[in-house]
Simulated assay, not measured.
Amino acid sequence: MSRASLGNAGEAETARYLRKKGCTLLASQWRCRFGELDLVARDKRGTICFVEVKLRGTGAIGLPREFVDQRKQERLRKAAACYMSTHEIDAPARFDVAEVYTDEDHRIVRLEYLEDAFA
């Protein structure tokens, strides 16, 4: 399975998780000049959730959330501001991280969802 296919599977699993929690998916793999937003959703309270999906396989070193460093966070903030402006959205927003874990056969075995992972 290619890296892109694995990433898409992780994003699809996260989208299913969000829908089960009552969220409405607004965008997937949304791009602008500042970068890409993996998923954008609106939760039941109307908060816009910018979700960074991080996939890790068996034997990977470090937690997926550790790879959303300061530089990545800044790119996500800029992309989120661009999304909000482009879509004329005036609502509270937050940044979440979805950690998707796979086994040695690249099957998704667990999803850890971190709300409000960074400000």
Rank of each mutant, 00 (worst) to 15 (best):
Y101H: 15
L25I: 15
F67H: 14
R77H: 13
I89V: 15
M1Q: 12
A80M: 12
Q70T: 09
G10R: 08
E36P: 01
K54S: 09
E99C: 14
K78E: 14
T24D: 00
N8I: 08
I108R: 02
R56T: 13
H106V: 08
E104V: 10
A9W: 05
E115P: 10
P64Q: 11
D90H: 14
G62I: 04
R16H: 09
V51N: 03
A79P: 04
R75F: 01
E99S: 14
L6M: 14
G10F: 04
C32I: 10
V51K: 02
R56W: 09
T102D: 14
F34E: 15
E88I: 04
D38R: 12
I89H: 05
D90G: 07
V53D: 03
A119R: 12
V100A: 03
D38I: 11
L63R: 13
R56D: 02
L18G: 07
D69V: 04
D105A: 15
K20H: 08
W30C: 04
D38P: 01
Y17V: 05
R31S: 04
V40L: 06
N8A: 15
R107M: 10
S28F: 02
G22Y: 01
Y101T: 12
S2A: 10
C49T: 01
T47N: 09
E99Y: 01
V100C: 07
Q73T: 06
Q70S: 09
I108E: 12
S2V: 00
R94I: 01
R33E: 14
P92Q: 09
D96W: 04
F67V: 08
A9T: 08
D96Y: 08
V51F: 01
D38M: 11
R75D: 04
G46W: 01
C49G: 01
I108S: 10
R110L: 10
M1A: 15
G35D: 08
T47I: 13
H106P: 03
G10S: 11
G57N: 07
V53F: 02
S85W: 03
R42L: 00
V51Q: 00
C32G: 12
C82R: 13
R65P: 02
V51Y: 03
A12L: 09
Y101G: 03
E115C: 11
D105G: 10
D96V: 03
C82D: 14
E13G: 03
S5H: 00
V100L: 06
R33W: 04
E36K: 08
F67Y: 15
G7Q: 14
H87D: 03
A12R: 02
V97S: 10
E99N: 06
D116I: 00
M84S: 05
